[in-house]
Design a protein around this nucleic acid. Sequence first.
DNA 1: TAATAGGTCTTTTTT
DNA 2: AGACCTATTA
Length: 669
Amino acid sequence: MKKYTLKSQKPQPTKDWALSDQLNEEQLAVVTASSGPNLVIAGAGSGKTHTLTYRVAWLIHKGVDPSKILLLTFTNKAARNMTDRVAGLVSHDAKRIWSGTYHSIGNRILRRYAAKIGLPSNFNIIDSEDAASLMDLCVAEAVDDIYVKRIPRGSVLVKILSLCINTQTPVPDLISHKFEHFKGMADTFRSIFALFQTRKLEMGLVDYDDLLLHWKRLLTDFVDVREALQSEFEHILVDEYQDTNLIQGEIIDLMSAKHRNLMVVGDDSQAIYGFRGAEYRNILEFGLRYPECRHFRLELNYRSTPQILELANRSIAFNQNQYPKTLRAHRPSGEKPAKLRVRDVYQQADFVAQRILELADEGISLDEIAVLYRAHHHAMELQVELTRRGIPYVVRSGIRFFEQAHIKDVLAYLRLLHNPKDELSFIRLAKHFQGVGNKRADQIWKLALNKPDPLRAIASDELLHALPTRVRRSWAHAAALFKELIGSRLTATPDSLVEKVIKGPYDDYLQKSFGDDYKSRAQDLEQLVNFAAQFEDIDRFLGEITLLSSMSGQDILVGGEVPDEKVTLTSIHQAKGLEWHACFVLWLSDGHFPSTNSVDTLEGEEEERRLFYVAATRAKEELYLSHVFTHRTRDNRAVVLRESIFLEELADSPDESQHPFETWILEEV
DNA sequence: TAATAGGTCTTTTTT
DNA sequence: AGACCTATTA
């Protein structure tokens, strides 16, 4: 008889687990908390991500199989960072943990069970722009011509439907609550929405909301799927829980119903996604849904000076709806934040640019400097000024790399190859060919659809001959390209497919329709080839890019001549979770921040104030708050702007030394 | 009849 | 930067 020893499957820690060196007492309690529901209220800069990372590592260290851990984060980038950090802490294969946004996890799960919902597993994901144009098509189909003009645009309808889904509110209720001007149209809307959902299923398309909606349906309508998923994930951890909405909250409750090992982390003071249906009652009422849950608090702030924290704390105290909390500063004393009054946007840009150069002279890395603002266009003049002075910067707001027209154009070809039922992509790419518009594209699609292999039919000679001479000439280019693409569809890598498209007839279209912008767009497309090269197959490539949250091209670009150091220009929303040595907050003027659209309700105003709180708490040492006091409106009227109430309310004492900021006077020489 | 070119208006924030 | 509307062209 021979003894054979099976090696232990338990992970072996490679690193020294002296946790108390890495974590404070509050954090340690969270990391080593026992199983079951755990609620962590974590103030800004309290090491929330750090703690959550250690918690995951600790679980793996204790023997939990990484593939049975589900970690939900707010962006996919955050997920990647945390997974990498966990991998650095445990020897075990941390890559196997399920981490990502709700939408990307929903995508992964849905690929597995697509058939249950009546979807092909090669479904394509559409962004809100595509969803809006499909909605327009549905309006045209579902509504009599004479009434079409009375129906709001597709983008508005998509927004309404999206809110209904994310807040789990029936259409009529939402309309009477938030869109009173559409009262009486609820039934029309409902029939349009029903058609919209049907069309997406037929075309094998899924929008952002469907990723949540179908995921939830899998859990509620299919017992076998529910049990499989509930058993599969032993531990579920949710970051930024204050920004989850109702359907996300329900999904998590369903997913964790069996093991009930659910740890949620968040800060109600940083809830800034109400416009997208986020429901911070999820976090406030967590204790009601899980009466046995343990409560933890992280209240020691490692990020900012006491002066910055003082300003942030005093500001957020003006909000009525919140968990009372005391955020304590750990860092030594620093300078008071600066408040400045700038004459106009150009002076604001001058000030920021000049101050950035001074900071750089003092030895502060440009990577440690950020400019934060409420709305993308608040930074336009600054972008011009930074460019003029040769200060390198990245913009992390505005249109995303993958949302740009030329990128979406090229991707449309790949999407159609991946899912030949994707009519939306077909219509988009068909219009690249001279003489083809909506009507002709529709006609070609219908001709091809009846054929056994629609993709080949598009490229067939038969179809070509059915077209009028003029269109036939240009469509011959399309047919040739398609023949080539179809031939290599199964073997080709994503980057070679992208390359085939951009080297083909699309290049002519690009030149013709973008003119002087052609060069930079062509460069973007080259970068797209590089980016695509990271993916093994189209499946993964297409699956990931629509869900990629990063805004700027620079995050996407591999290689290229990116400067080593650059200032970050970002919307406050995009700045969540990040920190810099010095932060500039622009446009703290009445009507701009808080924005006019938000201030008519208390909820709106409080969310704006939380936004201001998030902005202020991004700064480690220096915080500059700028009030633009004169401005020219679009119709060229000069207006004088009061300072933001968020500044005004902080200066409630006649004694200036009591103000949480120092007022700077600008002098021009 | 349908495509396209040119002018105007819009926009908070994002998965 | 792009969508929508209108006028012009094929």
